[in-house]
Nucleic acid binder design. Structure first.
Lengths: 356, 356
DNA sequence: CTGTTAGCGCGTTCAT
DNA sequence: ATGAACGCGCTAACAG
């Protein structure tokens, strides 16, 4: 009699390893316990408070960990612990040294707190910024540092609403701790400096004014000028790109001598370097002889530029550090926390573009 | 009769909220289920595959989520899923545009894969690099991208040993997928270019040669020269800092006319910009008239430099993208994966420092 | 379509 | 000093 077909078919052996492309889960604390001949509780103790476990068992556990290549599972640990020692930081972009300085300062301070800092690059895209904010939120990080784009803060508000501390860097908003740089003062310092040099026909170059930093710098320039009893003309730009700097250079050079500014307060180094280069090499206007120029940001290249550029340095690293400290405080204080805003002051760096 | 004291003491009410400084855990899926009047399974469905749940219940669940400010707990989700859609990237440093380009390319490609990219800055410190490698390892990320410092790869080897894919960027090592740039070719291109210009007394500036990238560029320079039947002198530097560039400039300028190189292949823009500036402004040596110069890296500032610098551009963004693609493949293929090294080619950008 | 339930890996009592 | 057992929040599998 024929064996029923359904029985004659060999049962496929259980897959030795997971399906193709699937990664195995790796050894767990239970595997370690089995190999070491102890219980999971003991392994956990050996891992977290080695002091309370007998040296002999400790050694056996360590041996098993080594042999198995065991790695602690952070998801499980965080799940039971209910909190995390990781801080998330979302950055508007990475391509300028100011932001990078902020990140480095934050990194240093966060590590000093015994925490770790994970960075996410929003790359000047609001949806991406919000994506990473949510990722950190869902990951239950201890807190979030955000150097946001100049745009609505819905994502940050939501995270904050979930009770997770969020500290803003280089951006002002109600309901958050924040670290700001005194933009107004930066504009004031640069302008004051040109006035001290005896320059009187001043222009502020930069835009659009929807960039709040630029608007602040312009306000500072106006205040300094007003105190000296002179005017500051505003030469607007559509962006902070070098091309706009070259355009302004041409515009300035084209004016008759008496109407041409003898001092330019420029809102960004990118703009300023291009402007100076165009002025000196194509329009035959001397810097600082005919026109003294200040930039803004102290980008890493401006001291090695053709005409080293006088500029306003923003203390990025300090800002990162302060932000991390504000965050730590907020984590510590919980609900009783009251928000604080730290304002740091920029610094004028005098170089050849204005020191003639 | 006196009531026993132990009974007369009012029992302290259970703490309304956790102890000071402790953060509450926030609402869980169970809270949502309770409020919506459904089971946790249904909530999970509503969250993950909304299609299979009745519109009415879906709405109730969404309402409850909204009202409670519920946030998915990624630790728990990853724990049960056993895998993660996050990729970790450890960067040797953030302060140069090449690395940042790599990070941006990687970010873009990783997002396109439906994954997220988290960055960690090692800040040129090996323990920090290893710390973040372990963090990602414990977090069970899908894989790790590493742009490492020029140092032993123990940490990466360990992570790899745990079965987690690690792709190296800008570093060569056995047992890993990697993306490299052909340094030798970069040196060759720059040197060939100067030879095409008719320059015959060539020098290569840079060091130390323990930097493998610098050594490769020098090899390429030597090969190009050999093919043309000329020699390349090596002018070593102790670092790639601008100061060393100025030092070399002085050294070159001090030589008698006949012994002075008429072509400089310089191993880094930082060095080259400083060298050119010193040559032209302090030593009265014309560039490219007396000496033609090439740099390396295409740092963002060299096109706006005094004398715009001819340089070798490394396709950072492409490298990041390729690395992310290699990683995705390795994640996909699991154990059957065989390591691949992608070599991308640099590109010569001719500018004024050599185009006279 | 919805409810129930069994783990995922770990830290933590509480006994022993 | 060690072990057993519970629960963190969630998904998947299955039962209804």
């Amino acid at each position: 009699m024929a064996i029923p077909e359904s029985r004659s078919v060999a049962v496929p052996p259980p897959a030795e390893r997971p399906a193709r492309g699937r990664r195995s889960r790796g050894p767990s604390i239970a595997d370690v316990a089995r190999l070491a001949g102890v219980s999971v509780g003991t392994v956990s103790h050996a891992l977290n408070k080695p002091a309370v476990v007998a040296p002999a068992t400790l050694a056996r556990v360590e041996g098993a960990v080594e042999e198995l290549g065991y790695v602690r599972n952070r998801a499980a640990r965080d799940l039971v612990a209910g909190d995390s020692r990781t801080v998330g930081m979302v950055l508007v972009a990475l391509d300028n040294s100011f932001i990078v300085d902020i990140a480095r300062g934050a990194e240093e301070a966060v590590r000093a707190q015994g925490r770790s800092l994970l960075l996410a690059n929003a790359d000047v895209d609001l949806p991406t910024q919000d994506h990473y904010l949510s990722l950190f939120d869902e990951s239950r990080v201890a807190g979030v540092l955000l150097a946001p784009l100049d745009a609505p803060l819905d994502g940050a508000v939501r995270v904050r609403g979930h009770g997770r501390p969020v500290v803003l860097v280089n951006y002002a908003a109600e309901g958050f701790c924040g670290v700001l740089v005194d933009e107004e003062r930066g504009g004031y310092l640069a302008t004051q400096h040109l006035l001290d040099l005896g320059r009187r026909r001043l222009a502020f170059v930069g835009g659009p004014l929807t960039l709040s930093a630029v608007a602040g710098r312009l306000r500072g320039a106006r205040r300094a000028a007003q105190e000296a009893g002179v005017e500051v003309e505003h030469l607007p730009t559509r962006s902070l790109q070098p091309g706009e700097g070259r355009r302004v250079a041409a515009e300035v050079a084209a004016r008759p001598g008496g109407e041409r500014p003898d001092g330019l307060v420029i809102a960004a180094d990118s703009l300023a370097v291009a402007c100076v280069q165009a002025l000196t090499t194509v329009h035959d206007v001397a810097v600082p002889g005919d026109v003294a120029v200040t930039g803004y940001d102290d980008n890493h290249f401006v001291s090695d530029a053709p005409v080293p550029l006088t500029t306003v340095r923003q203390p990025g690293q300090e800002m990162g550090r302060r932000a991390a400290e504000l965050l730590a405080r907020e984590v510590e204080e919980g609900d009783e926390h009251v928000h604080t805003t730290v304002v740091v002051v920029p610094e004028l760096l005098v170089r050849a573009s204005s020191s003639g």
